[in-house]
Design a protein around this nucleic acid. Sequence first.
DNA 1: TGTACATCAGTGAACGCGCGTTCACTGATGTAC
DNA 2: TGTACATCAGTGAACGCGCGTTCACTGATGTAC
Lengths: 228, 228
Amino acid sequence: MTTPRQRYRDQVRTEIKEAALGQIRAGGVAGLSLNAIAKQLGVSGPALYKYYRNRDDLLTELIIEGYDHAAHHLAETAAAVETQTPRARLHALATAYRTWSLENPHRFQLLAGTPSPTYQAPPETVDHARGVFSRFLPILGAGGDWPAGATLQEQMRAADSPGAVDWVERNAPGADVPRVLAGQVALWSRLHGVISLEVQGAFAGMGHDPATLLTLEMDTFADMLGLP
Amino acid sequence: MTTPRQRYRDQVRTEIKEAALGQIRAGGVAGLSLNAIAKQLGVSGPALYKYYRNRDDLLTELIIEGYDHAAHHLAETAAAVETQTPRARLHALATAYRTWSLENPHRFQLLAGTPSPTYQAPPETVDHARGVFSRFLPILGAGGDWPAGATLQEQMRAADSPGAVDWVERNAPGADVPRVLAGQVALWSRLHGVISLEVQGAFAGMGHDPATLLTLEMDTFADMLGLP
DNA sequence: TGTACATCAGTGAACGCGCGTTCACTGATGTAC
DNA sequence: TGTACATCAGTGAACGCGCGTTCACTGATGTAC
């Protein structure tokens, strides 16, 4: 079905993206330069414009693939612990997210940081961003009372973020939607707090093991939600 | 004591820093350009080299002043709530930190983000960074048992981060040092999780009030530490 | 109070560099008859 | 199987821009006697 030409195009696009990720690894998102990528591939600068409309287009594809890459990693972990308790699955997924972030710091920075002041993420990235957290949703639906989260759940019930309800119902069928959304945002901030600081190197020389901190944070989070 | 020439120097340095912060506000840290600052001040580019050795020197001073600016804001809040319970003080300080971050997003990005791939923060910034959290330390020393944090405290006892013990003893005299250090790192990650996501605009369109989330996170944090 | 000298803020030219992007083109690869 | 044509990857030159930093200099401000 795919013509040789198309196959070639796809391969070059892949090479471009690999070179781009290497550059981001070395010099941050700001260090991403089309000319430098071209040089690395042994090709003239303008040649890249046959594959990407401009720099931002390339960035967008990298970001989307970054989300999907993380989502895939989490999906594998989720499948492996399917039969365990919600609490155990939460720990497993949180650890998997941390591991992925440490092994792919350049990708993490691309997703978690402000990529660049002029760059505006296009709307189609939202679904991919959600994909990273999809596997957590069934866990957040489990569990008993969550009195402390009442206000947050109330706000989630009142808001209707486009597509959010669908997203929850697809990934955590039968669960209480506001509860899951409130849990998701709280979980996101906890994970982001621990992992982004570690990836940035902010914990260097503080003397603790970030994995211990993450376990502590997830355990108290599970307590808060009343997860079995 | 200060000569007119010195006063003039100080004033120009201040103007340079103000222009620099304005640029960071507009275009991120990557958008900080000495030439652009010079143009804004109506002066030639090389003139700035009479005031700062180079771009990184200017960045370092901005970062240090950023830490001090936040620390000062928190110190004012701490003074105003001195007589209240540890839990109430925790909420007040957390809110003050959030408010400062939202009102000074450019400064926050300077401190919390990776400023630039080539930039290396010099060691003298560490003390200033600690200053931001100094007012939290007495709060972390209060309270009862904290069984869940045993492992983290154990690690803090084993490590000796240079200057950390002094820092705690100066700001929370008589407190259990490992407990305070373990609490500090956990608190930091919680605050950073909520506030950095909000400042970056990541919460846009999710339907919740970030202040509610912060309150929830601080309340459960106080529970965890057994704060009265 | 006046003069000689030192300090130092600021200038303009220059260096070497890299950036994203456009444009008209060449030449190889693939397609249709 | 061979020929005519279309597609399209890649080139080199060019545009206009901005960057950090150095250097030798001018001219105003301050200091010492």
